[in-house]
């Protein structure tokens, strides 16, 4: 009993000492907390304004028809078109790009963190850095030139776009996954080796699992980075207003390209007696498509979080 009280007393004494002794430190602490809160508030203003604009301008156009029809045969101020073709195009092309980039990206990150020694590793690090600097339109031109070697001029199909996006996506995957893998404490690896677990199994079962949350964030960031790309897809995949599911044949529409084209189209000339004509339909379509694109990313994010929950080691 008596020892208990002494402990409590001394704890309180220490706490009092710590909190009163140096008001300067406490002031700094409070100022920094204030700064961090205000940084956050400051960041929220444009972000909320942006989300609000998209939501507000896009919601009016949103409907079941808008989501399940294409723009085939729609022109002028006709408001009955939709973005189904662009949604499919975005999902298929981004999906292909992800299938190409994520395995390569993660393997390269593993190579750099776990195996990378010597000139090859240095070269890879160096060139991944260089790759982050490829302007997106150059990636598109590169992909087009590559495929024209095999398919002749005029080749435009989804896979070309997927390759262009991969060129942009791989360095993002590598850079951020590398960072995440580095965060896995060496103690875990050493413990695993000490138990006789071979290196590849340590990587697969220990390193990757420990960092799975970070890896998922990295991949989602990389997907997010390319899902909104416009310029490379415009040159590599072209545009269409019909539905196409085949990435190896024919043009495809994607949401960002759709948004850009609709924005560029501007006003439709509607006569006063014309029914079924909305003058600013193109801009409405653009905002509606932007909202849809954000919704798609949101769904992917939720899926990513579920993946995290299933695979991440239960530590807490």
């Amino acid at each position: 009993m008596s020892t208990d009280t002494t402990t409590k007393d001394s704890t309180e004494y220490t706490r009092a000492l710590l909190t009163t002794a140096e008001p300067r430190r406490r002031r700094t602490d409070r100022i920094m907390a204030g700064l961090i809160w205000s940084a956050f508030a400051l960041a929220m203003i444009p972000l909320v304004s942006l989300l609000w604009t998209v939501l507000f301008s896009g919601a009016g156009r949103m409907s079941v028809d808008f989501l399940q029809y294409s723009m085939r045969g729609i022109f002028g101020g006709d408001p009955s078109g939709g973005i189904y073709h662009a949604i499919m195009g975005t999902l298929i092309i981004t999906g292909c790009a992800t299938l190409i980039s994520v395995p390569i990206g993660i393997l390269v990150a593993i190579y750099l963190v776990e195996y990378g020694r010597g000139p090859l590793a240095r070269a890879v690090t160096f060139f991944v850095d260089v790759m982050t600097g490829i302007p997106s339109i150059v990636a598109g031109l590169f992909a087009v030139s590559l495929f024209t070697i095999f398919f002749g001029p005029g080749a435009r199909f989804g896979l070309i776009g997927a390759v262009a996006l991969s060129v942009l996506m791989i360095p993002v995957v590598v850079r951020s996954c590398e960072e995440m893998l580095k965060l896995v404490p060496n103690e875990l690896r050493e413990a695993s080796y000490a138990l006789g677990v071979p290196k590849w199994l340590t990587i697969v079962r220990i390193v990757l699992r420990t960092s799975v949350a970070g890896l998922t964030t990295s991949v989602l960031l990389a997907v997010a980075r390319v899902i909104g790309e416009t310029a490379p897809l415009l040159v590599a995949v072209g545009v269409t207003d019909s539905i196409n599911f085949d990435p190896s044949e024919g043009r495809m529409m994607t949401l960002p390209v759709f948004i850009y084209r609709q924005y560029s189209q501007g006003q439709a000339p509607c006569r006063e007696d014309q029914v079924n004509c909305v003058a600013d339909i193109a801009l409405q379509n653009a905002w509606g498509a932007a909202l849809t694109l954000i919704a798609i990313v949101m769904i992917l994010n939720i899926a990513g979080r579920l993946v995290n929950r299933w695979f991440a080691p239960k530590t807490r």
Binding site: S70, G73, I74, H85, I87, A303
Partner: peptide, 19 residues
Amino acid sequence: MVGALALSLAACGSDPGAA
């Protein structure tokens, strides 16, 4: 993930002219 989404959506879309 993306593929599954694409498949499930594929069932319900159409070109307005095709109908």
